[in-house]
């Protein structure tokens, strides 16, 4: 009877240990403060918005897309993404880039654009100009 519980507890501990280990291994943190992103030497998910006023470069020979994003505090960061400009990028409200900050820029391996989708329609459009 006692053995059963000890055995059960052992299995649970091993399972949880394995899960926690894998969790820390594959865990990627969200960061919306770019000051922290720039000092982090781990892969993070940075959430921000595209700085439309700044230059962006689509380099078709090297298949990279370079642009700037900003966080809510106004910290800007250059992002180089291995790939072309994703779908809906221009209409995205915010972008989530996964990668690491190194040598003065954020090297992104993936971009997630937050767009209207399956479960909720978009809210009001960004109406910039005033009354006509």
């Amino acid at each position: 009877m006692k053995n059963k519980y000890i055995f059960g507890a052992f299995i649970i501990v091993v399972f949880l240990g394995f899960m926690v280990y894998l969790f820390t291994q594959s865990n990627i943190k969200y960061e919306s403060n770019f000051a922290k992103v720039m000092n982090e030497n781990k892969i993070v998910r940075a959430t921000g918005t595209w700085v439309k006023d700044k230059n962006y470069v689509i380099d078709r020979n090297n298949q990279t897309f370079t642009f700037y994003i900003t966080d809510s505090n106004g910290n800007q960061m250059k992002v180089i993404y291995d790939g072309m400009m994703p779908n809906n990028f221009e209409s995205a409200k915010s972008v989530v880039v996964t990668g690491q900050y190194k040598d003065g820029y954020f090297h992104a391996s993936s971009i997630l654009t937050k767009c209207p989708s399956k479960y909720e329609g978009q809210n009001t459009p960004d109406v910039k100009t005033s009354n006509l």
Binding site: F18, M19, L22, F23, Q25, S26, N27, I28, Y30, R45
Partner: peptide
């Protein structure tokens, strides 16, 4: 655990689920 991680500002890769 994996699905709830974003509540605490974390996220896991598909690898987490697959390997487990």
């Amino acid at each position: 655990v994996g699905t709830s991680a974003p509540i605490f500002g974390h996220s896991v890769d598909a690898a987490f689920y697959n390997q487990m």
